[in-house]
Design a protein around this nucleic acid. Structure first.
Lengths: 137, 137
DNA sequence: TCAATATATTAGAATGATTCTAAAGTGTTT
DNA sequence: AAACACTTTAGAATCATTCTAATATATTGA
């Protein structure tokens, strides 16, 4: 099974038609060893440089939003003018280097269990995320 | 010592001139019992309704940025199209209700100490923030 | 207190990320 | 292949935030 077939199935199983644009974006986003942290701008540059493809702005946004809604990628909570996404959709946390704007993952196992002493009756916990801001010394 | 004098001193001690606009904003932001979570839009509405004042957009942004730089307020890391600020500048964390967009503080003491098993050599930790996303059931 | 200087405020324009529009194109189903 | 549904596109629209440069206010020093 080559990647294309794999990605076609992935898209279909989420109810998304496997179009040329979506398959190309899958290649960039998911055919890699390490987690990819990106903004829309980063992604457009990669599409251009690596695949020499131009996908319109609107399609990139539509597709990323579709992927987000289907749980293929997730949005990262940072205060930044741009929105950051992450191809790692497992429960995990981030180091954010405020000097370089670099983001680094760390997993649940890299932190001792987070135990809340406060809870909100009638509410359901959806996620617990830790953001560690660091700077170069 | 009335509030105005208090706020004048607060501003001066941070190297900010106590102007009419800044004093009015201090009243709204700091003369309250509970933490205030707000966006620029929220703040403008309150200035308008409570004090019947119009401060220009640019001044509101300039002043909020000055207050942020002086550590009077802090920015909250959320993914939202708008930037959220918090008048509670102590180390603390947030519940974010994704159903209602409501933000609730919880303090360091409301969570067991967060112990990282991973660290980044050559980097200095600036803050550790927890964001707990909840929804109405 | 007054003039000189430095800093702040303002309206409106500019910028930049994201979303919308509606027309043309592609994928799916029969 | 026809009919239908969904997708892509360029460009316009929107919205938060920042910039501009003119005017106003605060501070300093004589």
């Amino acid at each position: 099974m080559n990647n294309n077939t794999h990605f076609e199935e992935k898209l279909r199983s989420a109810g998304l038609r496997p179009t040329k644009q979506r398959l190309k974006m899958c290649e960039i986003l998911f055919h890699r060893k390490k987690t990819f942290h990106f903004t829309i701008e980063d992604l457009r540059k990669v599409l251009k440089k690596k695949l020499d493809i131009k996908i319109s702005q609107a399609t990139i946004y539509n597709t990323i939003n579709a992927f987000k809604n289907k749980g293929y990628i997730k949005e990262i909570s940072l205060n930044s003018d741009k929105t950051y996404f992450d191809t790692n959709v497992t429960n995990h946390h981030h180091f954010y280097n405020v000097t370089t704007n670099e983001l680094i993952d760390f997993h649940d196992k890299d932190v001792e269990e987070i135990k809340l002493r406060k809870n909100l009756p009638g509410k359901k916990i959806r996620s617990i995320e830790v953001l560690v801001k660091v700077s170069n010394k």
